[in-house]
Structure formats: structure tokens, C-alpha cells
Amino acid sequence: MARAEPPAATFERRVLRSAAEHHYLRVRLELPDGGARPSVAQFKQLVVSALRELHGEVGAALPVDVLIYEEKTLSAILRVISSGLVKLWSALTLLGFYQNRRCAFRVLQTSPFLLALSGNSRELVLD
């Protein structure tokens, strides 16, 4: 029995899953005036300790890289695997102290593409 030809598909279904392996975060550490500024190694240590504090050893084992760290402005670009973005971000949010002094991480931008961090539309001045 000849099967009726299915009508030509008028649409096709495409599923795009975010295939990006990493996410990039541009962060700035805010410290009260006059405090000691962390070096690169200390900064990485701070990020890992924040992860350990909130998510334990599993969190501390999360692959996080500090791509750029500028000691003068205390800003950095972090790279993390996409599945760990929420963990890293929440750990940074809930970090409140650096060397027993108050501090705050400001996450300025996040993106799956490093190039997107080259500009920030929120810093543009509106007329």
C-alpha cells in the first residue's frame, strides 16, 4: 500500500543548546578605603575560599581561572565552566569579608563570549 506522501514540511525544528563551554565574568572587588589589596595569588585564593565556604570541597574543585587581574582597580575577568556559573556567582555574592574586613564582589558583566566583555553599554553616558 502506497503511503500518502507527507506534506512538505513548512517548518523545521531546530534545537540550539548553549554549547559554550565556558562563561566569563567581569568582576570588581570593593574594599573599604585603606585596606590591604590582594595580589593575583591572593585574589584567586579569595575566590576559591568563597567557593569553599558556600559549596564545600566540590565548589572549591570547580575549574575557575583568573584571566586578567588588575590590582590597581581590583577588577578581574574570571572564566568558569558553564555548569558552574551559578555556583561561582552565588559564592561571590555571598562573600562578605576579606581578611576580617568587609568587602563586596560586584559582578559587572557575564557572558559566554569573552569578546562581549570588551565593552559595557551600561557605562555609556546617556544624554
Partner: peptide
Amino acid sequence: LELRGPYDVAN
């Protein structure tokens, strides 16, 4: 320093 940005809070 105890305030967090809105996107941080959403996360």
C-alpha cells in the same frame, strides 16, 4: 558593602 546588585540577587 552589604548591598548586592539586582542580577546578583536574582542569581
